[in-house]
Amino acid sequence: MIPGVILAGGRATRMGGGDKGRLEVGGCALIEHVIARLGPQVDALALNANGDPARWADLGLPVIADADDARAGPLAGVLAGLDWAAGAGAEAIVTAAADTPFLPRDLVERLVAAAGPSGLALAATREEGRFWPQPTFGLWPVALRDDLRAALADGTRKVLHWTDRHEAGLAVWGDPAPFFNVNTPEDLARAEALACA
């Protein structure tokens, strides 16, 4: 059993605040695109978001908040997802960002195949001979949740600082397009163009 967790806990400051996942592309909210692509790949789906969970009620998903409201970045959302999954008896979760409407339809399969010795894997793209990790797309073993909790308490915020310590495997895509995320109004316009192409 591998549940999925959509990470939507950010502040969206470059978009002027609010819930980025609610912005529309191709006639649907970004988060609806993510649900449509990730949902069929996992056994259950939850949303990591902070603030009033009632604003997400229409999605019909469990809403899990960070353990505190320090906004410690994606790793805090991963930890919230791991704690939720542990309560459900799952051994791992897969995460995806709420602002990535074109995420791969084979994300989970490829992350599982790429898992490192600890069971951890991140998505990455290969461009011009270099690997570019996509740190909000990962396979995260529940067994590492206490280590992650301690790392966050010690001030770790960068995903790669923590995943490198645990020898995360890389699932590599040659095309970066599936990981395109919407951070700015210009990105939103580009996503709309891609969705309608």
Rank of each mutant, 00 (worst) to 15 (best):
E32K: 11
Q41F: 04
A12Q: 05
P185I: 14
A96Y: 02
A80Q: 00
P117I: 02
S118V: 09
A65K: 00
V108I: 15
A72N: 07
V78C: 04
A191G: 08
D68T: 06
A70P: 03
G39L: 11
L152H: 08
A49W: 00
V63C: 10
L107M: 12
G81I: 05
T95R: 00
R110T: 06
L38C: 12
R190I: 12
V42F: 02
C196Q: 13
A123S: 09
A171V: 08
A29G: 08
L38I: 12
L30E: 05
A8C: 12
T136S: 11
E109G: 02
D154I: 07
K20I: 05
V172A: 13
G77D: 06
L120H: 09
A54D: 06
D99W: 12
S118D: 15
G16I: 08
F131I: 04
P101N: 07
V25A: 04
E24G: 02
A197R: 14
P104Y: 07
D146T: 11
P3E: 10
L75N: 03
V94Y: 03
A65E: 01
R190T: 14
D83I: 14
A177F: 15
G89A: 14
A124K: 01
T100Y: 03
P101S: 13
G27H: 13
P133I: 00
E167M: 12
V172W: 07
A29H: 03
M15E: 15
P74Q: 13
W132M: 12
D66K: 04
H161L: 10
W162I: 07
P40Y: 13
C28W: 15
L144R: 02
D106E: 04
G77C: 12
P176S: 15
A195V: 10
L103N: 04
R37K: 06
P104E: 15
C196S: 11
R55P: 00
L139E: 01
A189I: 03
G174Q: 09
A124I: 06
W162Q: 08
G60K: 09
T100D: 02
V142N: 04
F131T: 12
D68E: 10
A49H: 00
P74E: 14
G4C: 01
R22N: 06
I64R: 00
W162T: 02
G174R: 08
V5K: 01
A193E: 13
E24R: 13
A49V: 08
R145D: 04
D66S: 08
L144C: 01
T163R: 02
A151M: 07
G9Y: 00
T13D: 14
A124M: 03
D99A: 15
H33C: 03
R157M: 05
I31W: 01
A197P: 07
A115C: 11
A36N: 05
D147Y: 06
P117D: 11
D19M: 06
R55T: 06
L160G: 13
H33I: 03
G138F: 03
A67C: 05
C196V: 11
R71E: 08
T95Y: 00
G17L: 10
G9M: 01
R130D: 13
V25E: 02
T13I: 10
T163Q: 07
N183Q: 12
R105M: 12
T136L: 06
A86N: 13
A191E: 03
A121P: 00
G116I: 02
T125Y: 00
